[in-house]
Amino acid sequence: MIRSLFTTLVALAVCAGIMPAHAQTYPTKPVTLVVPFPSGGVTDILGRLVAERLSGALGQKVVVENRAGAGGNVGMIAAANVPADGYTLFLGTMGTNAINASLYRDLPIKPAEAFAPLAMVATLPNVLVVNPRTHDIRTAAELIAAAKKASRPLTYGSFGNGSSAHISGALLAVGGGVSLNHVPFRGSGPAMTSLIGGEIDLMFDSMPTALPQVKGGAVRALAVTSANRSSIMPDVPTMQEAGFKGYDLSVWFGVFARSGTPKPILDRLATEIQKIVAQPDVQARMRSLGADPFIVPTADMPAFIAREAQRWAKVVADNRISLD
């Protein structure tokens, strides 16, 4: 009894001795930020922006590691199977941390349990675009009217099953009370080519890829999917303004650590990343990409993500979107 008490005391003392030291000395080696999408994409660029600033703040190099595949699952699973020591961080998205669990039944981890959220980074709305040469349509309402009149369902392109573009289109069909045919492509580029070539009727494209085509006049932007107008296209109304009640979709990006990471380390990382996202030049950089900075207190993140996961689970189930 005494012996075991002694052991416990020693253990506690050791822990007490280590824990603060841990937070004070962390990090003693380079930190990895797992980005679950290939380099060159928006997720990657956001990740590298955070990594660069975080390197400065932590005094240790933060290295971006691109682990792409299976809609971000490959990277997410890799980042969940590491020691909970704060040396491997994960750049999660709405897709990986709120949608994939409903899309992939075989997902071996529960993102909400596997990760501790640190900070949100940015949000990215989709933009509803049409080809002005095939459809002289100026508003989302006109689009719905055209869809109702058409002899065949209008078609919308997306960058894959279960992608935010697919879900945006499904929400449009439900909200407008019309049926639309989904045409998935491998990535945004081919879908945009098909829209400009006059094959598909409309598409919800991601802001960064839509922006140059809208500016160049190849496609016309009818609405953005976020609840508030985007600072990048302030003249384009939101879907809510266009009459779609409750329509609100923004792809968000946040930084996560393995759950079970010592609290002092989590706090340190959360504080630093929150500070980085608030820096004006970082925000300017995000806007130049087409993204809006997104600041959410760390304590509010779990509830926010849970709400998102619940919403998308319903949309995924109602529209029978599946990936297995």
Partner: peptide, 20 residues
Amino acid sequence: GTDVNTGAQRFTFGLFELAD
């Protein structure tokens, strides 16, 4: 890998490495 049109996983044997 993942069938782009339906999202079905084909011959992946549950391996996420094969999903693409």
